[in-house]
Write a protein that binds this DNA or RNA. Structure first.
Lengths: 200, 200
DNA sequence: GCCTATGTACACAAATCGTTCTACTTAAGG
DNA sequence: CCTTAAGTAGAACGATTTGTGTACATAGGC
């Protein structure tokens, strides 16, 4: 996660509108979806006048694109770049729930999945970004699988990425955390793909 | 699939408006999503006047709900009710692409996932229907897994359902058929969960 | 052959959408 | 202190949305 620097509740208005707009985007697009969030509401939450919003972003489409671009600029770095874990442990760590927000709530739907579903035009920059991000996650998995000595790292990478996405959408549909289910599958796949008893 | 009885291209207008409306819903909601499909366009495709549409369905919400209700009233019966296949074969058959539509196109996103993402209100009947359908698929898998003699049928059922959803959303995001990836995982899970060399 | 269900055409209301406008205020740097 | 860039408030625009109202047409069962 990037630093959200929420500030003392009611961020003081004034300079720094762009940041406030993007913060509000993160919150609202995540909570209620892109199409269900109007610019009026977004500006109200960001405590920014509409004029200012449109000086920073020429259109809502551009704001959406920037919102996705800013979100996770690198792909899950806190997991894949962790030097303390063995490659095998890193693969498994991707399926552990981050300690953000109270454990009672269900994790919100992956913003890239949301964008891929809500936006219809395949050529929309936001959808392209979603495509790239999803490919990037698989590539990271593949890379780590290769480091771990998996027999078919590309296949394993694609499989693990699919598990994460399945867990995300199923959590949304059933309102129940599906990540443990995905984690169990991941453990099986990793065990199957890695040479037995390799240290990592 | 239910009989769509498309008729000779330009369905003759007149009686039978309700069916035409639901047919158009299937087509348009699937192709462009629920929120991106207006009632005007829908009525035009259905060759039905708007007045008639609102005589059959009091609101778009109700139409969406009915569209999801009608769609697959039973859960994938052609797979789970097939008497020619062993339980194990039935589990695997769920991951084979149905021969509908040319193989070049990617399978459209599962309508229930679409509804779960596009609609924000958890209490919306359509979202409840999506919830129930997703639970139903898992239950069908579980039931079949039990027949096949799986050691932990409930876990396997939930896992296989997650794979299907992961494949659907990933196909959407990457514009590449992800079902084979899910099928490969399913094969591994099923092999792991079923007593070795059982006839089915 | 008539009666009634059903459907049509199309204008219209009301809300909401993204977007732009004008005119005013404020904060920071030199 | 004064200039200038940045932000504000809120009205308004045009397009689009869901949903209605009115007056008219037609197909089928009796």
């Amino acid at each position: 996660m990037t630093k959200l620097e929420k500030g003392p509740t009611g961020q003081r208005r004034g300079r720094g509108a762009r940041e406030r707009i993007l913060s509000a985007s993160q919150q609202l697009f995540r909570e209620q979806g892109i199409n269900n969030t109007g610019m009026d509401q977004l500006c109200a939450v960001a405590q920014v006048s509409k004029r200012t919003a449109y000086q920073h972003f020429t259109s809502k489409d551009e704001l959406v694109t920037e919102y996705l671009r800013r979100h996770d600029p690198d792909t899950m770095p806190e997991i894949f770049d962790s030097a303390e874990l063995t490659p095998r442990e890193r693969l498994l760590a991707a399926f552990e729930k981050p300690p953000s927000v109270p454990p009672a709530e269900t994790t919100p739907l992956c913003p890239f999945i949301a964008a891929a579903v809500e936006i219809n035009d395949t050529d929309h920059p936001a959808r392209r970004r979603a495509h790239d991000y999803k490919a990037s996650v698989a590539a990271r998995f593949t890379e780590t699988a290769r480091q771990a000595g998996a027999v078919e790292p590309e296949q394993l990478g694609e499989q693990l990425a699919l598990l994460l996405d399945g867990a995300s959408v199923r959590t949304r549909a059933l309102d129940t955390d599906a990540l443990p289910t995905a984690a169990a599958i991941a453990a099986v796949l990793i065990d199957n793909a890695l040479p037995a008893e390799a240290p990592g």
